[in-house]
Design a protein around this nucleic acid. Structure first.
Lengths: 190, 190
DNA sequence: TGGGTTACGTGACCTACATCACATTCTTTT
DNA sequence: AAAAGAATGTGATGTAGGTCACGTAACCCA
């Protein structure tokens, strides 16, 4: 499917826009292509955009003491990602975003999002629902962290995103689960 | 300050409503009073409302295996709480909400929120921002969970909400930090 | 005002997971 | 196809925090 159609279908699930309205909406997105391993946002950067994934897989992660990595989110097609704290508060990024595979994304600036939200009630509606879903998912993950051990969290993750098992290296899955790669390795070899 | 004025001031930070618009908006909220220890939402309930805290302190929590409690959120004045997953997906509650102290809240039904969002672009704008802040806070807490040990999380919590130390019993703070009360006790006696 | 419940402190012991170290395989790159 | 670099497996050992057990102090409320 074409880039534009992917976004259109995604939006149509929660917002009603005419063809012309969507064209206008779409005209604010900038398509970008990245190679595996390329960086999209580095900690310390000024963050000006959020990203809608068309193809490939990104990760949003935090690096602690320049040593340990914790993955906040894997971003797959039709997912949105950015350092939202930095984006909304206009502060420096503390989160990094880079490409696990080659990827195509659509980039939307903070100003354009706010402008579009203002111009179209339906766009504001869409972004409210999108954020809402993110919030609920985040709360759920928080609970899982408190309540479940590593094994349960691992199984939960693979049940939710079976494609991850083959797509991303195991040490990244460990970094998402908040566990050492050694522990994860021992886990599924038993 | 009066109940109505508290909500009005809160909304005014992100949305512009005329006096008449706000009156109409406010007419959808139902004021409720609760005593310390009273339950607002129990796991298994049908959830139909979200709650805006006027005074007092609530907790939103999850009970695991009918034994361990994990606190997702303390809700203080001007905070919103509910089981949002159950509320938006119209499923049974998995989260409980009850009162740590006597409390006054304003109750808004799911249908009324959606109606108001539809009727007033500014209301939709307000709820988008509110959820956005919640999402960012939730992501931050998730990171803290992965990155920090109990001591650091405890200090972070008290730095953010100093009033909690005197307001809520220590075992509830432990339940928020996702740690046993014994460990927390040993922590600040050293 | 006293008896029962809830909150809190502390010792002894246990366990899940981290860390370090090194071996093995798989994947790029040239 | 060889060399270098990632990714993975696995043993030995350390440790933060959990669990159990018991004691004391604080707070209801009848």
């Amino acid at each position: 499917m074409e880039t534009k159609a992917i976004l259109q279908q995604h939006i149509a699930k929660t917002a009603v826009l005419t063809e012309e309205e969507f064209d206008y909406f779409y005209s604010h997105f900038k398509p970008l292509s990245f190679k595996k391993g390329q960086t999209i946002i580095s900690a310390g950067d000024k963050v000006n955009c959020e990203y809608f994934v068309i193809s490939g897989c990104l990760k949003a992660f935090f690096i602690n003491d320049e040593i340990k990595m914790y993955i906040l989110q894997f971003a797959m097609p039709t997912w949105w990602t950015s350092d939202y704290s930095a984006l909304y508060n206009q502060t420096e990024a503390t989160i990094n975003v880079d490409c696990i595979t080659d990827a195509e994304v659509l980039c939307l600036s903070n100003e354009d999002r706010e402008k579009l939200c203002k111009e179209y009630h339906q766009v504001e509606h869409f972004f409210r629902w999108r954020t809402n879903k993110g919030y609920i998912a985040s709360q759920k993950r928080l609970l899982s962290f408190m309540n479940n051990n590593v094994k349960a969290r691992y199984e939960e993750l693979l049940a939710l995103y079976p494609q991850l098992y083959n797509l991303v290296p195991k040490h990244l899955i460990a970094a998402y689960l908040g566990v050492s790669r050694e522990t994860l390795s021992r886990l599924y070899n038993s």
